[in-house]
Design a protein around this nucleic acid. Structure first.
Lengths: 115, 115
DNA sequence: CATGATACCTTGCTACGAAAGGTACCCGGT
DNA sequence: ACCGGGTACCTTTCGTAGCAAGGTATCATG
């Protein structure tokens, strides 16, 4: 398995929430959007359980919309609880990713400040 | 479980490698160092299997050092292969974390450029 | 000698995405 | 009328990986 996909764990749900917040979307399309952002490692089957979980927790709400040229799409829109959760997760992500960055830079602070 | 610990998955090994590269260290101390950087979520038992795995792959090398006031410490130093792997993982991390950041910022590019 | 801190390691548990497979709809070609 | 292929959904099986908890050993202290 790709090492990077491991990083996605625990962040995928946050990403889905962020995508839906920007604009309601459906599963098949979200995979595309993630790929556009460089997260090309998400297999399609992975996100459906995630979406169900998010809905069960009241973060998002699904609804079907007919489409021409294919089966109906299940769009999801974000709920108030979802927005709050997204804020929390985003804060957490920022904190953790900053910590990782710090570990990576180690003691070499001199080159971080300025060239 | 904390959501943030999920994020650590797939990044912890990279962090350990980074810590050891900066300066040889032992398990008990690495947990402390991680906590200092804000990654307070790592339980001690988690990192020993990781260290063994890293050694098995030839990324690091362990050696015991006597200590006063406690049992001997198992220090690890980084190997050449480990340094290469660290570079690769770090590049991957940068790419993925940038992607996540982009998803989080969504379409709101205007506030990213400048205040 | 018992307690507690340091320091190592192991064993179940659970969570979560990957991979693969399955269903169904709709269009276009033959 | 039939079949292939793209769209779009969902489910099941599997492996990985950290967490939680527990176990062992060393050394200092009361």
């Amino acid at each position: 398995m790709e090492h990077s996909s491991q990083v996605l764990k625990g962040v995928l749900d946050m990403c889905l929430l962020a995508i839906i917040e920007e604009e309601p979307s459906y599963g098949y399309e979200m995979v595309d959007k993630l790929q556009e952002k460089g997260l090309e490692l998400v297999s399609e089957g992975s996100i459906y359980p995630l979406l169900s979980r998010l809905q069960k927790k009241g973060y998002i709400q699904g609804y079907f919309v007919e489409s021409q040229g294919g089966p109906p799409r299940k769009y999801y829109r974000i709920e108030a609880a979802g927005q709050e959760q997204l804020r929390r997760w985003a804060r957490e992500w920022t904190r953790v990713s900053a910590g990782v960055e710090e570990v990576l830079n180690g003691g070499e602070r001199e080159q971080t400040a300025d060239a």
